[in-house]
Design a protein around this nucleic acid. Structure first.
Length: 660
DNA sequence: GCCAATT
DNA sequence: AATTGGCAACGCTTT
DNA sequence: AAAGCG
């Protein structure tokens, strides 16, 4: 399918004539109206005159263990979408998959018409279609959802190469030169198109930054290389977390619902034989699980499709399937017995053939030692707590297992309030701070010395936290003091809650203002996303002052901000909801009050988490709910430094100023 | 998630 | 036998 | 004084 360009002719010719001013005109072959544009391509060394090709085999990247270093490489962000080749020919656009199938119609008019507005008449452009999740990150499962819902308003086409332009084949032109021309063409284009920038820094550094932003990884390319179809070494990809396609070879029915999936059984081919790769039990939303079930049902076969004998455990409850579907899976590594570990479903890949699926990255580093098997028993591990994000109870337990090392100092031995939701975030949620009958024994109860009637919940180790997961704790809210000294907080917390119409930039500005005021008091501020709407600024304090003074001090800070800039900030609750202001919420600093813990999940759509970050990361690249259960693991696994590593070391006493 | 009280 | 209620608490504002 | 709201 292709689209007519009539309505865009005018803008096209205007841009063309603009360009003629600076370019050296050189007539091309078989062109009439657009003769001037030839200059762009023709002056390039290596460009050769050729007819517009029907399809160019896309260049593919080889997976490598670590990003290449050295000046010959440039690096681009790896996007999580569909590779697409845009072919523009005399006012018609077609979008071709990596195998040359015409998928123009699947992506709606926005991309096609944006391409037609470019100042070219014939071109082949290489890129990736993606859907932006929230602010900036691209998400393959969202893309997939939009495709199946027929939703077409969120697609963006990120272009990174130009293979043909107005009569000239550019394949032999060095990459940087091709990108330079491409960038010129893309200048001031429709926002549905994005030029994919590259970075010249060391590969390792670029990768680290990409991973910190929970992106999928980077593609590194030889700056001077020509375009060559197929998989080669001129383009290499390095990933933040292991992620690859597998063949769906079976499923285990859900223990909860009859028409849902508990887990998928995955496989890959090795020398033509189908090998077993383990199960994937988390990551699919309800909607996906529904449609998946329908498709899987039609593929049922009585006997195992694997070319190897499965163990009794591997076989348990499995319904075998004809190995036709291909799914993308994110996982933390391979176990010694060649199973994928901590695997999460990321979507079906309709553009891949099951027969082509092999184990990637054979050159990968040795697998990390097998983590100890979970000892806390989870009833209904495949109960879905976040239906839209596909996070199950077991998935929640896996998440906490991964972040535990970093999270522990903020939750161990602190009285806790829990937001529980046994039926997931769509069911009824309730707070709970005292023990209950049937509470998992890995969590403990401690008498509040000031109120021995009450037994507060604490945890001492990961098993304690997993015990709370078993109790369907979807949010963890600790006190600011520990049971070593209930009356003296060792941290303070300011919650910045932007009202309607407050920009992200202004919320960031507010965080810096709190940081500045903390610094004036001698406190070191740390910042985290809230997982909701705003930001949390937290400071460690020496457990010296008691709750009433600490609270008064924080109230003074909040009131001070509101008084100094009343059109920006308010310090009392209800008035705040009035648009355009940021609520400086200090009330998390009283005895028995709690604030959501660093790394705690939030019982909100998308399974966001409250993520500690460096101040430098506080930019418009992220948002309050940018980090989620799905993308946090990649960030944690990759980051070399804990953003809050200095937290305990930075503690200082609060000096209470008596007011006159 | 689970117990207890209620229909 | 099946359904329903409960499971925090605090300062503040509106009713 | 009670009820609503983060």
């Amino acid at each position: 399918m292709a689209l007519e360009a009539s309505e865009h002719k005018r803008s096209l010719s205007r841009k063309t004539s603009d360009r003629q001013m600076s370019g050296k005109a050189k007539p091309g072959k078989g062109k009439t109206a657009d003769a001037g544009k030839e200059s762009l391509a023709a002056k390039l060394k290596g460009a050769k005159q050729a007819p517009l090709p029907e399809f160019v085999e896309p260049q593919l990247a080889t997976l490598v263990k670590s990003a290449p270093s050295g000046k010959r490489w440039i690096h681009e962000v790896k996007l999580d979408g569909y590779r697409l080749q845009a072919r523009i020919s005399q006012g018609k656009v077609s979008l071709l998959t990596r195998k040359g199938l015409d998928w123009t119609h699947k992506f709606g008019k926005a991309i096609s018409s944006a391409l037609l507005k470019l100042p070219v008449s014939d071109a082949v452009i290489d890129g990736e279609v993606a859907v932006e999740a929230g602010s900036g990150a691209t998400d393959f499962s969202l893309l997939q959802q939009d495709l199946s819902d027929g939703r077409q308003d969120r697609f963006t086409f990120h272009v990174f190469d130009l293979l043909y332009l107005d009569g000239y084949d550019l394949a032999a032109v060095p990459l940087l030169k091709r990108k330079e021309i491409l960038e010129t063409i893309l200048k001031d284009c429709d926002p549905a198109l994005r030029y994919s920038e590259h970075f010249g820094d060391e590969g390792g550094i670029v990768l680290k930054h990409a991973c910190r932003l929970s992106l999928e990884g980077i593609i590194s390319k030889v700056a001077t290389a020509p375009y060559r179809g197929g998989r080669g070494r001129d383009w290499v990809k390095s990933k933040c977390s292991a992620r690859q396609e597998f063949v769906v070879a079976g499923y285990v029915p859900s223990s909860v619902s009859k028409t849902a999936i508990g887990s998928l059984v995955m496989g890959y081919y090795e020398n033509g034989k189908l090998r077993h790769a383990g199960r994937v039990g988390t990551g699919y939303s309800n909607a996906v699980a529904q449609s998946l079930f329908k498709r899987l049902d039609e593929l049922r076969i009585p006997k195992s499709p694997f070319d190897e004998k499965l163990t009794a455990v591997e076989r348990k409850d499995v319904v075998y399937l004809k190995p036709e579907l291909v799914a993308e899976v994110e996982f933390r590594g391979w176990t010694a017995d060649s199973h994928i570990r901590h695997a999460a479903f990321r979507g079906l890949r309709e553009d891949k053939d099951a027969g082509d699926i092999v184990r990637e990255g054979a050159a990968e580093a040795e697998d990390a030692p097998m983590p100890a098997k979970r000892t806390v028993n989870l009833t209904h591990p495949d109960r879905v707590y976040w239906p839209d994000a596909g996070v199950t109870k077991a998935g929640l337990a896996d998440y906490y297992t991964q972040v535990w090392r970093l999270m522990a100092p903020f939750v161990v031995n602190r009285p806790l309030a829990l937001l529980r939701g046994p039926d997931g975030i769509k069911g009824q949620l309730f707070f709970q701070k005292h023990g209950w009958k049937g509470m998992n024994k890995n969590a403990a109860l401690v008498k509040d010395p000031a109120d021995p009637e009450q037994e507060d919940i604490i945890i001492r180790d990961l098993d304690g936290l997993l015990g709370l997961v078993q109790g369907a704790a979807l949010e963890i809210h600790p006190w600011g003091s520990t049971v070593n000294d209930w009356e003296k907080p060792d941290m303070v917390n300011i919650d910045l809650d932007p009202g309607d119409g407050v920009s992200w930039e202004r919320t960031i500005e507010a965080a810096y203002e709190v940081k500045r005021r903390f610094a004036e008091m001698g406190l070191t501020a740390f910042v985290k996303t809230s997982g909701g709407k705003g930001l949390h600024v937290v400071a460690p304090v020496k457990p010296k002052a008691e709750w009433p003074q600490v609270k008064a001090t924080m109230k003074a800070l909040a009131d001070g901000m509101a008084a100094d800039e009343p059109d920006k900030y308010v310090s009392t609750i209800t008035k705040s909801k009035r648009t355009g202001k940021i609520l400086i919420d200090y009330l998390r600093n009283g005895r028995g009050n709690t604030a959501v813990a660093p790394y705690s999940t939030r019982a909100r759509p998308g399974a966001p988490v409250s993520m500690p970050i460096e101040w430098e990361e506080l930019t418009d690249a992220i948002s309050p709910n940018y980090f989620t259960v799905a993308n946090a693991a990649a960030r944690i696994a990759q980051q070399t430094r804990d953003p809050w590593r200095e937290f305990r070391k930075a503690e200082a006493p609060i000096v209470f100023k008596e007011k006159k």
